[in-house]
Design a protein around this nucleic acid. Structure first.
Lengths: 355, 355
DNA sequence: CGTAATCATGGTAGCGTTACCAGATCGTGA
DNA sequence: TCACGATCTGGTAACGCTACCATGATTACG
């Protein structure tokens, strides 16, 4: 059963309290056209002559007008609702996801429904709880990794945006970063620091991000003509504990790495723990880097060098996308959208100490 | 400068798409009164004869009517806006705070504005960015710890709810948990496990929560007739690193503790790192507990035994409170509101090993 | 040059609610 | 019994916007 909150969201402009706000009629007068024309400019944007359109747009700008979403939704009989699924209210990501979604949803005059999905939900149960009144769906990882969820949304016919899930089919979209390239960049950074024996801790191989990050690592090494040591590529589960275990194994090897690249920050933090358990220091004895820039990256000490994902931008983009798709269902659009990531250089990586 | 997003929130009921929804006029007909009376019942609740009121309420229930917030806000010319300040979009807490606030804000037909406050903001700058169109303010920790912020909101006259800040004056309110009692409970739990040498890592003494938690610890020991060893009470900064350092110091002492109670989870996680650096195991060699149940508590291994704060409930309550205060400015209300906390027993604490 | 088709725009009528004022009902005292 | 205030209730007109249909302006073609 889905737990939670049905919410609607509008932006209403911060007009000075009490003072009457600028309406579409004011704009119409100022531009010398009828209110209807203004309304059309603001919505259809199509059948209005471009000269008129410009005039109106100029007036809108001059008067600093912004439409009253309440009136808009009242007149057009209902608002489009977008549902964001999430797994855990205390998830580190949720805050950023919501901030982005809220902002966009306000700007576009949509409503946001935020729904909790228990991590052990079955596809059948999820299906039962999908509400046909929703106009769109945003599904972030790790829910997007649920077996069969892509088929489900396809069958139900929901315009859907997956976050960081990779492959999408049918009418669904995906928004993420270029995990492959980001991982390659990180690998190259490590190499540029002087590391040659670099270990990689992979996430669960059924997550597309895991494999993308691994191949980025692979190719990063290959491009720099650094030999890939199979011993140094191990599998984790994207959890702290698995990272710790993997780190321990890596460090106990006969020829341990000088740097460890973990497939996400939780595992990198686990590696940090493993290193200190071995009586070693990060980054002096071994460099450790992660991926995601989750809150743990700047909590642990030393702070993790990692790849930052623009989560707020992702949901913002997702909402914008859904809004367009809902307005023009037939519209042809790119299925996969890549946003900019960035390499956060912090304190957990440095050049290897000469032996 | 405040960064971010102006948002409004309404609930609109999930009426079956397309089907006309039940309006206040339907209710009026059903109850045999005029629409105005229904409206009054739903708002004023005062000058309507109680017999009529009941009739209307019955019809509302019978028809499963719920008001259209868009129409409501349009007719009454504007919606009350509540602003939630936050420090960091990737803060672990933000998600939960938002979930609670969103739910309540929707239910009460208010708008939510979510505003980022850079951590290094000065009071003057914050003041400049306060928007007079806001009707209420929610200020969670750690922003609530800003020097002079309480005086500021008092002077500006904003109805304000602080989260977890403790003492409030004037028209402000505070919502939190009983830090003292929770800390005492945790201490008693540790004692019940058999621990006698228990260390406490305090947070910065200028945070009220720090001192409350410390005195809870103190009194917990005292009530059980366990002697307080001054050596075992050290100061941290609520950060991982400070917790790690404090843990190291504690463990290097001539007579180390069998359990360490950190004033928050970040510090407890730091202690975990310190313990493993000393080649010891948690909880076998030393028990470690925290406070807050932040995401890091269930990320690290072993999972931290800690005190859970109901963050979503806090913001939900805060919104409800503000809504009432705004409607009836004169209303006398409690200043401080305590919510239920809970002791999360996980894997980082166990009975001490006999020496 | 006239007529029909096309395009761009305007007018009107609501959407569901509340504000405001007028009217109805009631109880009370002369 | 009637007038008079107090209490309750109803009618009407917005709120700002969009749907819908009608109209005027333009072009195309015979």
């Amino acid at each position: 059963m889905l737990i939670n909150s049905l919410l609607g969201i509008f932006v209403t402009d911060k007009k000075e309290r009490g003072k009457p706000s600028i309406t579409l009629i004011d704009v119409a007068k100022h531009a010398g056209v009828s209110p209807m024309t203004v309304s059309r400019v603001l919505n259809n944007l199509s059948i209005v002559k471009s000269a008129t359109k410009e005039k109106v747009l100029a007036s809108v700008a001059a008067l600093d007008y912004s439409p009253n979403q309440a009136a808009r939704s009242l007149a057009s009989g209902g608002t489009t609702q977008i549902c964001l699924l999430y797994g855990n209210p205390s998830s580190a990501y949720l805050g950023e996801l919501l901030v982005g979604a809220l902002e966009a949803v306000g700007k576009h005059g949509l409503q946001l429904i935020v729904n909790r999905v228990p991590s052990d939900i079955s596809i059948e149960e999820l299906q039962k709880n999908l509400d046909s009144s929703w106009d769109g769906l945003i599904i972030p990882a790790p829910i997007s990794d649920l077996e069969g969820i892509r088929r489900l949304v396809e069958e139900e016919g929901f315009p859907t945006v997956f976050l960081e899930c990779g492959e999408v089919s049918g009418r669904a979209h995906d928004i993420g970063i270029d995990d492959y390239q980001a991982s390659k960049d990180m690998t190259e950074y490590l190499i540029s620091l002087g590391h040659r024996r670099i270990a990689f801790i992979q996430g669960p191989p059924n997550h597309r991000t895991s494999t993308m990050r691994l191949s980025g690592f692979h190719d990063g090494l290959a491009d720099a003509d650094v030999e890939v040591d199979k011993e140094l590529i191990v599998e984790g589960a994207f959890t702290y504990r698995s990272g710790m275990q993997a780190g321990l194994n890596l460090l106990e090897a006969s020829n341990p790495p000088t740097a460890i690249f973990a497939g996400n920050d939780d595992m990198a933090a686990g590696v940090l723990a493993a290193v200190s358990e071995k009586g070693l220091k990060v980054p002096k004895d071994v460099s450790v880097v992660g991926f995601d820039d989750s809150p743990i990256a700047t909590t642990v000490w030393p702070h993790l060098t990692t790849i930052r994902q623009p989560l707020a931008e992702m949901t913002e983009y997702a909402v914008r996308l859904l809004s367009e798709v809902i307005k023009e269902p037939g519209k042809q659009m790119k299925k996969t959208h890549l946003l900019e990531y960035s390499l956060q250089m912090r304190d957990s990586a440095c050049p290897p100490t000469k032996t």
